[in-house]
């Protein structure tokens, strides 16, 4: 039993001396301001350096619009594919026992330990013009590297674990009991999935999708290797930012960057809302 409430009790025993506390808080706030908040503000300040009109012009040039369109299309293809993969992987891993399960989980996490540039390189070696598979595909009019499919594959590679990693711990914890109950009540596979499983995992799924989307729209290293950087065709927003920046078109580069930064802020906002509201339904302990 506890006669007292932990939160309201002043606890001199389980905390540090006042001075140490203040120093630690001061250090943390200062470093966060310099490391996180300052760069964020710098993006918007640089974008608006020559006023709103210049910034708007940067965003509406044909190349910029093409880059935005490509980024949106890539995300629109990659994110649903990743969601399907994440659900399938989580279903297989948490609802069945099979040999090599631990190994499969390791493989799903593999992209976290591979440099995006190496991922891009691997795709070039697999599908590039000087590999037999790439040559064969090009003969059949299917370009992968330096074209849209390559960008898709590169983005898929780097975002691969996002949804699965959110779902697996949640579904592990929820166990199989509810699905088995539905089974005894005569429900079929898809009915069980849509009426029992999906409602239980929807917030965790949304969380994973959110993170996946942020990475998909922002991926640079892997895409840079396979895109070929053809203006208006294979330049995503981050690639476009690099090109503009290297051409000293700072305002245009930062305007595009500001658009992506806004997207990041929206992502963080939604993510925080999800965490505050549905903390118990998310695998917060494994989040990142």
């Amino acid at each position: 039993m506890s006669d007292t409430n932990l939160m309201t009790r002043p606890t001199p025993v389980t905390t540090e001396p006042r001075l140490a506390r203040h120093i630690l808080i001061g250090t943390v706030v200062t470093l966060i301001a310099a490391l996180l908040f300052a760069p964020l503000m710098a993006v918007f300040a640089e974008a608006l350096r020559q006023g709103w009109a210049a910034s708007f012009e940067g965003l509406t040039s044909p190349d910029a619009r093409a880059a935005m369109r490509l980024t949106l299309i890539v995300a629109a293809v990659v994110v649903p594919l990743n969601a399907v993969f994440g659900i399938a992987a989580a279903w297989a891993i948490t609802r069945f026992d099979f040999r090599g399960k631990a190994f499969l989980i390791t493989l799903i996490d593999l992209p976290f330990s591979v440099s995006p540039v190496v991922a891009g390189l691997a795709l070039v070696l697999l599908f590039g013009a000087n590999s037999w598979l790439g040559a064969w595909l090009i003969d059949h009019d299917l370009r992968i590297v330096f074209a849209f499919p390559g960008i898709l594959l590169a983005t898929l590679f780097v975002t691969f674990p996002f949804v699965a990693r959110e779902l697996i711990p949640v579904m592990m914890e929820q166990g199989r009991a509810e699905e088995e109950a539905a089974l005894t009540l005569g429900a079929g596979g898809w009915r069980i999935f849509f009426t029992v499983t999906l409602p239980n995992i929807r917030w965790a799924l949304l969380y994973g999708v959110l993170l996946c989307n942020a990475r998909a729209m922002g991926e640079f290293g892997a895409v840079a290797v396979v895109s070929g950087k053809i203006r208006g065709e294979t330049t995503t927003m981050p690639i476009m930012i690099e090109m503009l920046y290297n051409e000293y078109l700072s305002v245009a580069a930062f305007s595009l960057a500001a658009a992506l930064a806004l997207l990041a802020l929206v992502t963080l906002l939604l993510k925080s809302l999800l965490e505050w509201r549905y903390a118990d339904l998310l695998a917060i302990t494994r989040r990142h």
């Binding site: 039993m1 006669d3 007292t4």
Partner: peptide, 18 residues
């Protein structure tokens, strides 16, 4: 019973509570 203050008294004796 719980809420009677007995744990609080014990913790005051220990110096865990003031």
């Amino acid at each position: 019973p719980s809420g009677s203050g007995k744990t609080t008294l014990l913790r005051i004796l220990a110096g865990l509570e003031f």
